[in-house]
Amino acid sequence: MSREHSSSPAVLFVNWRDTAHPEGGGSERYVERMAEGLAGRGYRVTIQCAAHANAPADEVVAGVRYRRRGSRFTVYLWALVAVARMHADVIVDVQAGLPFFSRLVARCPVLVLVHHVHREQWPAVVGPLLGRIGWWIESRVAPRLYRDCRYLTVSDETRRELAGLGIATARTTVVRNGLDTPPAVHAEPDPDPTLVVVGRVVPHKRVEHAVDVVARLARRWPKLRLEIVGHGWWLDNLRRHVEQRDLGDRVVLHGFVGEQDKHEVLARAWVHLCPSVKEGWGIAIMEAAAHGVPSVAYRRAGGVAESIVEGETGLLADDFDDLVRHVDRLLASGDLRSSLGAVGRARALSFAWERSVAEFEAVLVETAGLARV
């Protein structure tokens, strides 16, 4: 039941990017699904994020107001201004490594949303020196600044890692990702062994590991191919890596593709790889599973150890050699791929954004003392 617009609670998300941003990804999709779901339930929702050329400074999409201001770094200043000036009932501070420091100027409760901690990503993205500074802010400054705030994350693994930073599990709630209903596809599994990677092409996603898997298995599987779907500022480096491994005839770099094309590529793959350093959850893993495609990822890469049920929907590797062995095993066994794929498909389709929004709303209501809309 909706209230009159003027009396509906106002929620302000401060986030680094949105999904239209050239570097937008799964965490941005999560934020937007939550925002859209809340708007549909009668909340007044605003997302304050960085400006970019793919979208206007101000617009309303699916009931959510977008305010795009600032660049990669000045977005934090613009967000502080928005927090100070807007009459919100609750702030959702989305911390992708750096906090927005909203607690300093907020006049209402702050809910901290963390997809995963970034200890491993910092040096990979900004180098060792700035990486140490960034990790100090994330691991020492932010927990102290937000010590009275409630936290929300997307996996039990991140909840445990936050506890390691001094954020009590009693203050942290897990609300997992939902899954967009996959479109009908025309593709069928390719007759030749085909691997796929879906995601942003940035250093900490380690897409090069998938290329190296192909190099290691090329002699054993002469027709093995890899399709990479995604874009990002690291794409030229990845292209050079493919050339250096002399795999131009086996690796396809699709770059950005539309949703339908992405699902067609997923549907024709035999195995999906997620070699990332760290993921909060792993939406691409669930998208692949929805097509009956099992995934292989690194065991210590955060939430992937929950989006993959080891031995039931996919396999988890301890190191690169283990990753190669798991891929080889799956390529060699159609029965295993089919078994993992069937269980994975059923599990993936059980995840619904509507349920995630309901759980997210419950945390908001508790955090801000709101009456449920």
Rank of each mutant, 00 (worst) to 15 (best):
A215V: 03
R216P: 01
L217D: 10
L217E: 00
R219H: 15
R220H: 05
R220A: 08
V229F: 08
W234C: 04
L235C: 04
L235W: 14
D236A: 14
V242M: 01
Q244K: 00
Q244E: 02
D249M: 03
V251T: 02
L253Y: 09
G255E: 14
F256C: 04
G258C: 08
E259C: 05
E259R: 14
Q260C: 08
H263E: 01
E264R: 11
V265L: 09
A267I: 02
A269E: 12
A269Q: 06
W270K: 02
P275I: 02
S276A: 12
S276E: 11
V277S: 02
V277G: 00
K278S: 15
K278A: 15
E279C: 05
W281L: 00
A284C: 09
A284T: 15
I285C: 03
A289H: 11
V296T: 10
Y298S: 07
R300L: 15
R300S: 15
G303D: 11
G303A: 00
A305Y: 09
V309C: 10
E312Y: 01
E312R: 11
G314M: 09
G314N: 10
L315S: 14
L315P: 07
L315D: 14
L316K: 12
D318P: 06
D321I: 05
R325T: 13
R325F: 05
R329C: 08
G334P: 09
D335Q: 15
G341I: 04
G341P: 05
A342Y: 02
A342W: 01
A346P: 00
R355G: 06
V357Y: 07
V357G: 12
